[in-house]
Design a protein around this nucleic acid. Structure first.
Lengths: 243, 243
DNA sequence: TCTTATTGGGCTAGTGTCAGACCATTGATG
DNA sequence: CATCAATGGTCTGACACTAGCCCAATAAGA
């Protein structure tokens, strides 16, 4: 920090870029995270969701179409269909992705993710402790866990994302959910560049298990620790590519 | 959540409002938080910081001037001087502020703040544990603590804000610092509506002490617990005005 | 008293973004 | 085979925002 840290923290840019760029970014993230698996919502609805005009949205969609992420078809039952499958990763991709990002930005993203996800798990466990977690919500958490644990290599990233976001969303705080989604998005490209090894999946499964157990048991400290341990594995792997 | 939670989380609005509104909001927050104590930076510099044009910034400044928050003077050594002191709070103000916000939004803001601040404290304590916290940074934390503990009623809010933000900023993650600032901003009006009692200050001082002790000792769980306990006090007070 | 650097005040031309309306295409369904 | 609802494609007028430039005021310092 140059001068007064608080000043640069609060007097930071009010917008990240123009509406077009932000929209492209957002849609790309939704696609890469597998949140929109088949096709985007209709333009009119999507524009309303994103709080932008249809014109701007269409520009973004066209950009993604030209980049090969979408196939747009007209007429009833038409729409913007997702044509994207994560590329086969190689260590060269990862090195390039990390290099594109810069080490400062990477550290920032990883630290941010660590904080918000630990915080979310902690909040959720506290809610469970106080009896504020309905059986229905407990069930959803268990279901997401089972899904990611039984996932094959193709679905793994998507279901892993769904599991992590689920924890944040179950807190009932849209702000917190958005922060966790944002944190995840910032490392998506990096994660996609890491080969998915069966050994890693099994390792992660045990950690996911521990997270859910701690949350359902209403143990905030254990929940945060479990998340921290889980994320530290990924972080260490990524940071290893900086030397 | 209506349908797919993940969809509404990621496909949320890309911008909160127009540039003018966001700028007014941001400046107002900087003023109310006491981050700009005397006067704003020169228009040209401030516009660059906020990533907006000078025209838009000037509109925002004029709005704040007309609302009585700023006194703008021309010429060298001129500028936009802060003319604002937090009003004497009364319980009526608080009830109105809470009512203005709505209980869902309040819960959201409080949950979000709990998560990010606990997360930040946890991250910082972990860094301390790993020896990643220089003596200089430890000193700054202690200094902020001493400042807030020796503050009078007039300076209390400002120094309390500075202390909390300091924890987030010492993690070295701008994203995390911004999230904590944002979380704080969302409850500023409510906090300002609570009368500052000497008893509360002393109570908070002990909790601040516990937070710093846990962080410097490198105990992540204790640090998060201390923050949680501290914030829960405020949250309970605010939530009490909902019945 | 004069100079000068610094700061707010104001203007213009150009671009980005929006809301809303209307057109074109498609495929399921009667 | 004709209809029609849903969806993308296109246009227009209005407003928001920007970059860059120059002017006006002010107070410290020569």
């Amino acid at each position: 920090m140059d001068e007064s840290p608080r000043l640069t923290t609060v007097l930071r840019p009010v917008r990240a870029g123009n509406a077009f760029e932000e929209t492209v970014e957002r849609l790309l993230q939704a696609i890469k995270l597998g949140i929109v698996a088949e096709k985007l919502p209709p333009e009119r609805e999507l524009a309303a969701r994103l709080g932008i005009s249809r014109v701007t949205l269409r520009e973004a969609i066209r950009a993604l179409q030209e980049a090969g992420y979408l196939d747009v078809r007209r007429g009833r039952y038409g729409g913007a269909f997702v044509t994207y499958s994560p590329p086969e990763p190689g260590s060269e991709d990862l090195r390039r992705a990390v290099a594109d990002m810069g080490t400062d930005e990477l550290d920032d993203a990883l630290t941010f993710r660590m904080a918000v996800e630990c915080g979310a798990a902690r909040v959720l466990a506290t809610a469970a402790l106080a009896g504020g977690l309905s059986e229905e919500r407990r069930g959803e958490l268990r279901r997401r866990l089972a899904e990611v644990n039984s996932a094959g290599p193709d679905d793994y990233r998507r279901l892993d994302t769904a599991f992590h976001l689920c924890v944040a969303e179950l807190t009932g705080s849209p702000l917190l959910a958005a922060a966790c989604a944002d944190a995840r998005l910032r490392v998506t490209d990096l994660l996609n560049a890491i080969p998915i090894l069966q050994r890693n999946i099994e390792h992660a499964a045990a950690q996911h298990e521990a997270i859910v157990t701690a949350i359902l048991a209403g143990d905030p400290d254990a929940a945060a620790r479990a998340v921290a341990e889980h994320l530290e594995g990924t972080a260490a792997l990524l940071r290893g590519f900086l030397a």
